[in-house]
Amino acid sequence: MISVLVDILSWIALTAGAAFYVIGAVGMTRMPDLFTRMHSVSVSDTMGVGLLCFGMILQAGPSLLAVKIAFVVLVLWATGAVATHALARAALHDGAKPLLAAPDGRLVPTDCVDLFPELGVRLAQPLASETPEEGETPLPDDGATIAEPAPGYGPAGNTGANPDAAPDPTREDR
């Protein structure tokens, strides 16, 4: 009796998850610009993945397998949001213009920096994770260090950094 109930629930979850997945993918091929495509991919990345994994958890029963599937769902939910956010920010930074509705209803590429002036300020700033920490000397970045490995490049573990620069106090040789 219980197993039949679990099977029915599992059927519903798996078919609904597959439907959400296909809907998100159809949106990804048919939406007009990058930002709306990202919006539709999030459908399959949240509801699709969540329902599919819920159906699989029901079939797995209380076991290590169920824990693993739950881990997959949590990782996908967390990383999907981060990756989408980074993608949107990189696209805006690159000058991509979202399609917005003009007063006559047509979709026009609109520079959203005009609409939201604070967005331009925020885009010009580096991300919080990219700003150097207090007390840390920022590594020099002058294209030359990328092109040719420095002569002192070797066992010191000072990978990529210019050896002539001031030693970075936060980078310990291990």
Partner: peptide, 28 residues
């Protein structure tokens, strides 16, 4: 269902006008 979605994502990856579209498709 997932295979159909995968095919549509491949279509977007091949068609995508910008590199960001292709990257989105690669993620999907």
């Amino acid at each position: 269902g997932v295979l159909v979605a995968l095919t549509l994502a491949v279509v977007r990856a091949l068609k995508g006008p910008t590199a960001f579209d292709r990257l989105l498709a690669a993620n999907a």
